[in-house]
Design a binder for these strands. Structure first.
Lengths: 242, 242
DNA sequence: CAATTCCTGATTGTATACAAAGTACAATTC
DNA sequence: GAATTGTACTTTGTATACAATCAGGAATTG
């Protein structure tokens, strides 16, 4: 297994922040799996720092909901359940709708140009069939809208909620059947914002989330079935082996 | 000045959580004022613990946005600006609307009864003219709605955003001219939820936030004018004194 | 053989020690 | 007298030491 996280980033940041970013990335990419324990001495050795910055990083991850604390047992990576994901998406649906509405009011001419470019770039990206490229183009498009709101709190919340689903970002991208509708939705959102049509923009933003939700939930169910099957399998082995 | 925070709470919680709750409360009630520095040794002595739990508590406050970190200078209580408050309220407007809509779908019969009681209790509370009593009744009413959504993430977010405005909660409560419209709005929200009228419920929830916004922003402006006046006054004194 | 108790090792929770950096104030120089 | 430099002190950043608790296994007892 990858013995070293790529722990480097900004060298002048306090170690706790470097550790925080490192661990968060490891959790979001799945390098640290749900249920896995975060043991302080172990992590400290692995990252070459003392326990103090590790602990302070864990406190932040705790508040972000990425790890859960068990008293006198320490931290472990939070499980993502279908319920917790639906909860996140339910909030995002409202906030993404708010984003496009605010964007209608506040987007600048420069941002409109950028948005058009991002919209076109996304369409081109889908033709590459490279999920990484497509995902990046998707993020770029939505980022412009979020930034256009000028609401720092909203920007922060959307980023945080998006992170919770980072692991499943590819699932709805990979499904090539949906590419056309994705491109289409982006285009409608773009055009609605340009026309200052809040209602249509918000409606499409919600639809956009709905589609993601379907893809992701399907994926989650699959994973849970697999892990359940794996569990029963290993239990069987354990029985026959003992 | 109050030399001791009332630091006690649950005795079995880790010290960092006790400190976290203590400091958060101190910030939200205004006992620790915006711009005030949080010095670790000082706080440690004052609360009778070592620096470690203080630091870990500060990490959580940092992520919550209640304190800001200045490199090599430590933490200080975050300033609340008119912009940051408008940002918070803008998000709350969307999330409160989401809350009442979800409540229309998911509220149980027991909760409906509780909501009616809370609605009536609020009306009675306004007649006492005791801001604390009124504020508590207001929180109780909204809490039932938020809980009725069953969305843990939403509940957490609303609580966090509400906290940001804790200091100003009384401002819109104190204005007795508004009491009638507050009672009225609560009643409309209650009735809309019972009738499963999402549109009306959401609309009224937004109006409810708008009214709060007006009161609070007015108060903020006043405070800033006062502190600006104070500043120029003390600068004058400094000049004449030097 | 099962259950219970006790012990040992491991891990977290807390405190303290040490290093680095920044700030304020005084002394010195122009 | 103003500006600059140097020094002492304060405060944070990091590491480590110590205490409390918990988990798991071995030994003992019924």
């Amino acid at each position: 297994m990858g013995d070293n996280f790529n722990m480097s980033m900004d060298e002048f940041l306090p170690l706790r922040d470097v550790v925080f970013n490192t661990l968060r990335k490891a959790i979001l990419t799945g390098e640290l799996k749900p249920g896995e324990r975060l043991m302080e001495i172990h992590l400290a050795n692995r990252l070459g720092v003392s326990r103090t910055p590790i602990r302070e990083a864990i406190r932040k991850l705790e508040l972000e909901g990425l790890v859960i604390m068990i008293p006198r047992r320490g931290a472990e990576v939070a499980q993502i359940t279908e319920k917790s994901l639906k909860d996140v998406l339910e909030v995002r649906r409202a906030l993404d709708a708010l984003c496009v509405e605010l964007a209608c009011d506040r987007i600048t001419e420069e941002e409109e140009v950028l948005l058009k470019e991002a919209c076109d770039a996304f369409e081109r990206a889908t033709t590459t069939r490279d999920a990484t490229v497509i995902a990046r183009a998707d993020v770029a498009f939505h980022d412009i809208i979020v930034q256009a709101t000028g609401n720092q709190r909203l920007i922060q919340l959307i980023n945080n909620l998006s992170e919770q689903m980072y692991r499943y970002r590819f699932e709805y991208i990979k499904d090539e059947n949906r590419h056309d509708s994705l491109v289409n939705e982006h285009r409608i959102i773009y055009e609605s914002i340009v026309r200052r049509d809040k209602k249509k923009a918000a409606e499409t933003a919600r639809l956009h989330i709905d589609n993601q939700e379907n893809s992701i939930i399907r994926q989650i169910c699959l994973e849970q079935q697999q892990s359940a099957a794996k569990k029963t399998r290993s239990e069987k082995e354990h029985k026959t082996g003992g």
